[in-house]
Design a protein around this nucleic acid. Structure first.
Lengths: 214, 214
DNA sequence: TTTAAAATCCCCCATACCGAGTTATTCAGG
DNA sequence: CCTGAATAACTCGGTATGGGGGATTTTAAA
């Protein structure tokens, strides 16, 4: 019989959240549920990082706006120290910029604070089971990020050329890959520049990326 | 009092699925639930496209492997004709390639056929409510696609340079943006090429993208 | 504190690339 | 039949790129 305080199948959780009411609420909910155990709670990333090795959490619930280091930075540092830790962002902010920064930094889930409490427990299980818990809006943002603008001013050939250009290929290489003359590619690119109202490769790629033409 | 066959708040659904058992199962489930209505079911995209204007569905449930046009192509054509239609892919295949192709083509959700039946109804409501229903594995794939390789051989400065290079910027532009000399950028790029064992910009970007270094 | 890695800068060279301007042919779809 | 799309050709001047060499300074790790 094991003498540890929690059974081995318990999911070890840390909470990083500056609002003590929310922090304690989460801790209470999680600790009060069989199969979960809160190792520690913190009001800032700095403290959480100090004890990360000792706490050895499976899942970290992470706020974004925090005193000192913000949550995005914190995610990066936790992932660097312990790459297998699963991090779920829990915040009130749901704007594109923050969502993508958090995911790029290594977050494996993204929820908003107005979720029903039981959703939190589901999410922790979901991320441990190989999923990626997301709020409705975040899921949509993420999926939409794959989709192109359907009102592109570019023809399909022009889009094709611009895509290859954005991969760093030269006019000659593109010409070879598309089995046409280099001059044809030059003409396509001139037309692309004219349509996008730009005067260089970098501007074209920037504009096309921003408007999701490629 | 309205004389239409379904109340205005009913979600109009079409099913495209070549297995008649599954197709009829879905239709029965959806039509048997208040607030949902199946407009039509099809065994191939071609037929679904012919009646798309008439059916005017809010949501299309789309299989991938189909006789004739495959589901990915079908998604693109439906979105072209009626961009506001929400499409949920329902398939047995969950590999990266198919998932990303489907999302790029315009799918707004992606589920597997082994889901519990009620999940289908939830998913239809979810996508109509601005969400993006995904199976556990698909959600994880999608989130992981934002994350970089944490074992990059490149230094942070080199990564920064390669990122700007991949945006189509020239050595001089990169130098200006990073407030260093062009010669410094050239050295960084030489080191990047050496580390990645490549000999050109395009190769470097290709390799870095594949290994998620940028 | 010694060392190694990272970041910075400089030179040469030859080729290929790029942006701008202009014109023109072929072909498919409405 | 006419427009848009894709294709191709020409010139011109300047820039970018890849490869070679060497050097210094700053930072981080051992």
């Amino acid at each position: 019989m094991s003498l540890t305080l929690s059974p081995p199948q318990s999911i070890k959780v840390c909470v990083v959240e500056d609002d003590s009411v929310i922090r304690d609420g989460f801790a209470l909910l999680i600790n009060g549920t069989h199969g979960f155990r809160v190792m520690n709670t913190y009001h800032c990333c700095e403290d959480a990082l100090k004890n990360l090795e000792h706490d050895d959490p499976d899942v970290v619930l992470m706020d974004i706006e925090l005193p000192g280091m913000n949550g995005i930075e914190g995610i990066g540092k936790i992932k660097k120290l312990k790459p297998k830790t699963n991090i779920i962002v829990i915040t009130v902010y749901e704007n594109d910029d923050l969502v993508f920064k958090a995911l790029c930094a290594g977050a494996g889930g993204y929820l908003t604070k107005n979720m029903p409490p039981l959703r939190l427990l589901e999410a922790i299980q979901e991320i441990q089971g190989g999923g990626a818990p997301m709020s409705t809006n975040v899921a949509r943002m993420v999926v939409q990020s794959f989709q192109k603008n359907r009102n592109s001013p570019l023809t399909s050939r022009e889009t094709e050329v611009l895509e290859l250009l954005s991969k760093g290929k030269s006019y000659s290489t593109i010409a070879d890959e598309l089995f046409v003359d280099k001059e044809t590619i030059r003409t396509h690119i001139k037309n692309i520049y004219w349509k996008l109202e730009v005067h260089s490769k970098a501007e074209a790629i920037e504009k096309a990326t921003k408007e999701r033409l490629i």
